[in-house]
Protein backbone atom coordinates (compact mmCIF):
# COMPACT_ATOMS: atom_id res chain seq x y z
CA UNK A 1 0.00 0.00 0.00
CA UNK A 2 1.19 3.43 -0.89
CA UNK A 3 0.37 6.74 0.74
CA UNK A 4 -1.90 5.89 3.65
CA UNK A 5 -2.50 8.74 6.08
CA UNK A 6 -1.69 7.72 9.64
CA UNK A 7 -5.03 9.08 10.85
CA UNK A 8 -6.73 6.53 8.60
CA UNK A 9 -5.30 3.43 10.29
CA UNK A 10 -8.49 2.98 12.21
CA UNK A 11 -10.10 -0.40 12.73
CA UNK A 12 -13.74 -0.29 11.73
CA UNK A 13 -16.57 -2.30 13.22
CA UNK A 14 -16.19 -5.06 10.62
CA UNK A 15 -12.51 -5.55 11.58
CA UNK A 16 -11.28 -3.87 8.42
CA UNK A 17 -9.43 -0.67 7.76
CA UNK A 18 -10.66 1.60 4.98
CA UNK A 19 -7.76 1.84 2.61
CA UNK A 20 -9.89 2.09 -0.50
CA UNK A 21 -8.24 5.33 -1.60
CA UNK A 22 -4.72 3.98 -1.30
CA UNK A 23 -2.83 3.01 -4.40
CA UNK A 24 -1.79 -0.61 -4.51
CA UNK A 25 1.91 -1.15 -5.07
CA UNK A 26 4.14 -4.19 -4.75
CA UNK A 27 5.59 -4.05 -1.25
CA UNK A 28 9.34 -3.59 -0.79
CA UNK A 29 10.00 -7.16 0.34
CA UNK A 30 8.05 -8.67 -2.53
CA UNK A 31 9.98 -6.37 -4.87
CA UNK A 32 13.18 -7.88 -3.47
CA UNK A 33 11.83 -11.34 -4.23
CA UNK A 34 10.87 -10.35 -7.75
CA UNK A 35 14.21 -8.70 -8.49
CA UNK A 36 16.09 -11.70 -7.06
CA UNK A 37 14.13 -14.03 -9.33
CA UNK A 38 14.86 -11.83 -12.36
CA UNK A 39 18.58 -11.76 -11.52
CA UNK A 40 18.62 -15.57 -11.25
CA UNK A 41 16.95 -15.69 -14.66
CA UNK A 42 19.51 -13.21 -16.08
CA UNK A 43 22.27 -15.53 -14.89
CA UNK A 44 20.56 -18.71 -16.09
CA UNK A 45 18.12 -18.17 -18.97
CA UNK A 46 16.99 -21.81 -18.70
CA UNK A 47 15.17 -21.34 -15.43
CA UNK A 48 11.53 -20.45 -15.67
CA UNK A 49 9.88 -17.68 -13.69
CA UNK A 50 6.37 -17.39 -12.28
CA UNK A 51 4.77 -14.63 -10.21
CA UNK A 52 1.83 -15.72 -8.07
CA UNK A 53 -0.44 -13.71 -5.84
CA UNK A 54 -3.52 -14.28 -3.78
CA UNK A 55 -5.93 -11.45 -4.26
CA UNK A 56 -8.85 -9.74 -5.87
CA UNK A 57 -8.98 -8.48 -9.46
CA UNK A 58 -7.27 -5.21 -8.39
CA UNK A 59 -4.06 -7.06 -7.55
CA UNK A 60 -3.67 -7.98 -11.22
CA UNK A 61 -1.97 -4.65 -11.89
CA UNK A 62 0.96 -5.94 -9.86
CA UNK A 63 1.11 -9.14 -11.87
CA UNK A 64 1.02 -7.08 -15.07
CA UNK A 65 4.05 -5.21 -13.79
CA UNK A 66 5.80 -8.55 -13.19
CA UNK A 67 4.97 -9.61 -16.76
CA UNK A 68 6.34 -6.28 -18.06
CA UNK A 69 9.57 -7.10 -16.25
CA UNK A 70 9.68 -10.32 -18.30
CA UNK A 71 8.43 -12.78 -15.73
CA UNK A 72 7.10 -15.57 -17.93
CA UNK A 73 3.87 -16.52 -16.18
CA UNK A 74 1.57 -14.75 -13.77
CA UNK A 75 -1.06 -16.50 -11.65
CA UNK A 76 -3.75 -14.93 -9.51
CA UNK A 77 -5.55 -17.08 -7.01
CA UNK A 78 -8.91 -15.61 -6.19
CA UNK A 79 -9.21 -14.43 -2.66
CA UNK A 80 -9.23 -11.68 -0.14
CA UNK A 81 -5.88 -10.59 1.18
CA UNK A 82 -7.54 -8.41 3.76
CA UNK A 83 -5.76 -7.85 7.04
CA UNK A 84 -8.27 -10.21 8.65
CA UNK A 85 -6.99 -13.19 6.63
CA UNK A 86 -4.65 -15.12 8.96
CA UNK A 87 -1.23 -16.14 7.58
CA UNK A 88 -2.09 -19.81 8.14
CA UNK A 89 -4.88 -19.51 5.59
CA UNK A 90 -2.81 -17.54 3.09
CA UNK A 91 0.04 -20.06 3.33
CA UNK A 92 -2.40 -22.94 2.89
CA UNK A 93 -3.77 -21.46 -0.32
CA UNK A 94 -0.33 -20.60 -1.70
CA UNK A 95 0.83 -24.14 -0.86
CA UNK A 96 -2.03 -25.61 -2.87
CA UNK A 97 -1.20 -23.23 -5.73
CA UNK A 98 2.47 -24.23 -5.74
CA UNK A 99 1.52 -27.90 -5.77
CA UNK A 100 -0.78 -27.24 -8.71
CA UNK A 101 2.08 -25.62 -10.64
CA UNK A 102 4.10 -28.79 -10.13
CA UNK A 103 7.86 -28.70 -10.34
CA UNK A 104 9.07 -25.77 -8.27
CA UNK A 105 12.60 -25.50 -6.86
CA UNK A 106 12.56 -22.13 -5.26
CA UNK A 107 9.85 -19.98 -3.71
CA UNK A 108 10.69 -16.36 -2.94
CA UNK A 109 8.31 -14.40 -0.72
CA UNK A 110 8.56 -11.07 1.00
CA UNK A 111 9.28 -11.26 4.72
CA UNK A 112 5.93 -9.65 5.62
CA UNK A 113 2.95 -7.90 4.11
CA UNK A 114 2.69 -4.14 4.47
CA UNK A 115 -0.85 -4.25 5.86
CA UNK A 116 -0.83 -6.93 8.55
CA UNK A 117 2.92 -7.38 9.02
CA UNK A 118 2.48 -10.93 10.36
CA UNK A 119 5.79 -12.12 8.99
CA UNK A 120 4.66 -15.75 9.13
CA UNK A 121 3.35 -16.72 5.71
CA UNK A 122 6.67 -17.83 4.20
CA UNK A 123 7.60 -19.90 7.24
CA UNK A 124 4.22 -21.65 7.44
CA UNK A 125 4.30 -22.21 3.68
CA UNK A 126 7.66 -24.02 3.98
CA UNK A 127 6.28 -26.12 6.80
CA UNK A 128 3.24 -27.10 4.71
CA UNK A 129 5.41 -27.91 1.69
CA UNK A 130 7.82 -29.87 3.89
CA UNK A 131 10.72 -27.74 2.62
CA UNK A 132 13.40 -25.84 4.48
CA UNK A 133 12.92 -22.11 4.94
CA UNK A 134 15.57 -19.45 5.15
CA UNK A 135 14.38 -16.10 6.40
CA UNK A 136 15.57 -12.51 5.98
CA UNK A 137 17.41 -13.26 2.75
CA UNK A 138 19.23 -10.35 1.10
CA UNK A 139 20.76 -12.03 -1.94
CA UNK A 140 20.64 -15.30 -3.88
CA UNK A 141 23.17 -16.41 -6.47
CA UNK A 142 23.44 -19.62 -8.46
CA UNK A 143 26.78 -21.41 -8.31
CA UNK A 144 26.93 -24.61 -10.39
CA UNK A 145 23.70 -26.32 -9.42
CA UNK A 146 23.61 -24.90 -5.91
CA UNK A 147 22.07 -21.77 -4.48
CA UNK A 148 24.26 -19.37 -2.55
CA UNK A 149 21.96 -17.62 -0.11
CA UNK A 150 22.94 -14.60 1.98
CA UNK A 151 20.69 -13.87 4.91
CA UNK A 152 20.64 -11.73 8.02
CA UNK A 153 21.41 -13.34 11.38
CA UNK A 154 22.05 -11.68 14.73
CA UNK A 155 25.80 -11.64 14.15
CA UNK A 156 25.63 -10.23 10.63
CA UNK A 157 25.17 -11.92 7.26
CA UNK A 158 25.35 -15.69 6.89
CA UNK A 159 26.06 -17.48 3.63
CA UNK A 160 24.26 -20.76 3.06
CA UNK A 161 24.98 -23.01 0.09
CA UNK A 162 22.26 -25.52 -0.68
CA UNK A 163 20.09 -27.08 -3.33
CA UNK A 164 16.34 -26.65 -3.73
CA UNK A 165 13.55 -26.96 -3.02
CA UNK A 166 13.50 -24.17 -0.50
CA UNK A 167 11.33 -21.24 0.56
CA UNK A 168 13.12 -17.93 1.09
CA UNK A 169 11.63 -14.87 2.77
CA UNK A 170 13.24 -11.74 1.37
CA UNK A 171 14.22 -8.55 3.11
CA UNK A 172 15.75 -5.31 1.85
CA UNK A 173 19.37 -4.97 0.90
CA UNK A 174 21.16 -1.70 0.26
CA UNK A 175 21.79 -2.14 -3.46
CA UNK A 176 18.90 -4.35 -4.52
CA UNK A 177 16.07 -2.46 -6.16
CA UNK A 178 13.43 -3.73 -8.51
CA UNK A 179 14.32 -2.78 -12.07
CA UNK A 180 11.91 -0.60 -14.04
CA UNK A 181 9.69 -1.71 -16.86
CA UNK A 182 9.81 0.39 -20.00
CA UNK A 183 6.63 1.96 -21.30
CA UNK A 184 6.64 -0.41 -24.27
CA UNK A 185 7.04 -3.50 -22.06
CA UNK A 186 4.24 -2.20 -19.86
CA UNK A 187 1.96 -1.82 -22.87
CA UNK A 188 2.85 -5.30 -24.15
CA UNK A 189 2.27 -6.78 -20.71
CA UNK A 190 -1.26 -5.39 -20.61
CA UNK A 191 -2.02 -7.63 -23.60
CA UNK A 192 -0.62 -10.74 -21.92
CA UNK A 193 -3.04 -12.91 -20.02
CA UNK A 194 -2.91 -13.63 -16.33
CA UNK A 195 -3.79 -17.16 -15.26
CA UNK A 196 -6.71 -17.11 -12.88
CA UNK A 197 -7.46 -19.92 -10.42
CA UNK A 198 -10.45 -19.99 -8.14
CA UNK A 199 -10.14 -21.68 -4.76
CA UNK A 200 -12.25 -24.56 -6.13
CA UNK A 201 -9.58 -25.14 -8.79
CA UNK A 202 -7.06 -26.05 -6.11
CA UNK A 203 -7.46 -29.76 -5.44
CA UNK A 204 -5.19 -29.80 -2.41
CA UNK A 205 -7.24 -27.21 -0.64
CA UNK A 206 -10.14 -28.40 1.46
CA UNK A 207 -11.31 -25.71 3.76
CA UNK A 208 -9.24 -22.63 4.23
CA UNK A 209 -10.88 -21.78 7.52
CA UNK A 210 -10.42 -25.26 8.92
CA UNK A 211 -6.86 -25.50 7.75
CA UNK A 212 -5.97 -22.15 9.15
CA UNK A 213 -6.55 -23.44 12.67
CA UNK A 214 -7.16 -19.91 13.82
CA UNK A 215 -9.44 -17.09 12.99
CA UNK A 216 -9.29 -13.43 13.72
CA UNK A 217 -11.58 -12.34 16.49
CA UNK A 218 -10.62 -8.74 17.16
CA UNK A 219 -8.26 -5.99 16.07
CA UNK A 220 -7.91 -3.13 18.50
CA UNK A 221 -5.64 -0.29 19.42
CA UNK A 222 -3.76 -0.54 22.69
CA UNK A 223 -4.70 2.35 24.91
CA UNK A 224 -2.00 4.91 25.37
CA UNK A 225 -0.60 4.67 28.90
CA UNK A 226 2.30 7.06 29.00
CA UNK A 227 2.08 10.69 28.16
CA UNK A 228 5.05 11.86 26.12
CA UNK A 229 5.98 15.41 25.35
CA UNK A 230 8.01 15.90 22.20
CA UNK A 231 10.61 18.63 22.58
CA UNK A 232 12.63 19.46 19.51
CA UNK A 233 15.45 21.76 20.46
CA UNK A 234 17.98 21.38 23.22
CA UNK A 235 17.38 24.73 24.93
CA UNK A 236 13.68 24.15 25.18
CA UNK A 237 14.38 20.64 26.46
CA UNK A 238 16.44 21.95 29.37
CA UNK A 239 13.77 24.52 30.28
CA UNK A 240 11.00 21.94 30.14
CA UNK A 241 12.98 19.48 32.26
CA UNK A 242 13.53 22.04 34.99
CA UNK A 243 9.91 23.10 34.87
CA UNK A 244 8.75 19.49 35.09
CA UNK A 245 11.11 18.66 37.98
CA UNK A 246 9.86 21.72 39.84
CA UNK A 247 6.29 20.59 39.30
CA UNK A 248 6.97 17.04 40.49
CA UNK A 249 9.02 18.17 43.46
CA UNK A 250 6.28 20.59 44.47
CA UNK A 251 3.57 17.97 44.25
CA UNK A 252 5.73 15.47 46.15
CA UNK A 253 6.90 18.02 48.68
CA UNK A 254 10.58 17.71 47.82
CA UNK A 255 12.75 20.81 47.76
CA UNK A 256 14.70 21.62 44.59
Amino acid sequence: MDQVLSADWVVQEDQTIDLSYANRVINTYDEQGLETMLRLKDADPNCSTIAMTLGTKETESMLTKALALQVEKAIRIDGETAISQPPQAVARILCAGIKKIGEVDLVLCGRQASGSENGQTGLILAELLGWPCISLVTEVLKRDDRLVILHQVDEGIEEVVMGGPVVLTMTQSADHFLRMATLRDMMDAKKKSIIHWRLEDLKELQSVKEAAGASLSRIFTIEERKKCVMVEDAEEFADRMIEEMRRVSKSEGVGL
Binding site: Q3, S20, Y21, A22, N23, R24
Partner: peptide
Protein backbone atom coordinates in the same frame (compact mmCIF):
# COMPACT_ATOMS: atom_id res chain seq x y z
CA UNK B 1 -3.32 11.12 -16.46
CA UNK B 2 -0.14 9.12 -15.82
CA UNK B 3 0.75 11.04 -12.68
CA UNK B 4 -2.87 11.00 -11.50
CA UNK B 5 -3.10 7.21 -11.92
CA UNK B 6 0.28 6.70 -10.28
CA UNK B 7 -0.41 8.84 -7.19
CA UNK B 8 -4.19 8.85 -6.86
CA UNK B 9 -5.16 5.62 -8.69
CA UNK B 10 -8.29 4.67 -6.76
CA UNK B 11 -9.81 8.14 -7.32
Amino acid sequence: ETEAAESYGPF
